[in-house]
Amino acid sequence: MNKITVHCTVNHKPVAVEIDPNKRLLDMLREDLNLTSVKEGCSEGECGACTVIFNGEPVTSCCVLAGQAEGADIITLEGVSVDGKPDVVQQAFMDAGAVQCGFCTPGMILTAEALLAKNPAPTEEEVKQAMSGNLCRCTGYAKIVEAVLLAAERARGGV
């Protein structure tokens, strides 16, 4: 199979990756760019573990062909922390106790980042709605929702 070259921005840096045209974005990020925070869960767009921020939207990267990322701006969890330190959402997840096994956490944080970028003051219902594409089997979501609301409040300078 002839390889294709995908040019896109990943975690604020331009990259050009030579890949098989049938490769999924998930595999390109994990295998070619070593961004292993992107998790493979269900492989059918149901669980949200492989979520990345794709041109500002949370997208399940298992359902995107890497070639579709041509020219796109992609953020993974590795691109969220600031100078190697947790950002406001990551810190809120830690403080609220929103992490148990941690497998859903990268996707959860990226979905929260995308929500807060558009809606800095979401209601609890809006948070639940936004996070509903990301499954978590451990927490029952209570502390995840609490973390997103806490992050929003802190980002607005509340706490």
Partner: peptide, 17 residues
């Protein structure tokens, strides 16, 4: 054996605990 056919609760479905 897939999450589209074995339905677990989302953040919209869980009760307030």
């Amino acid at each position: 054996p897939t999450l589209s056919k074995y339905i677990i609760e989302t953040s919209m479905d869980v009760p307030v605990v």
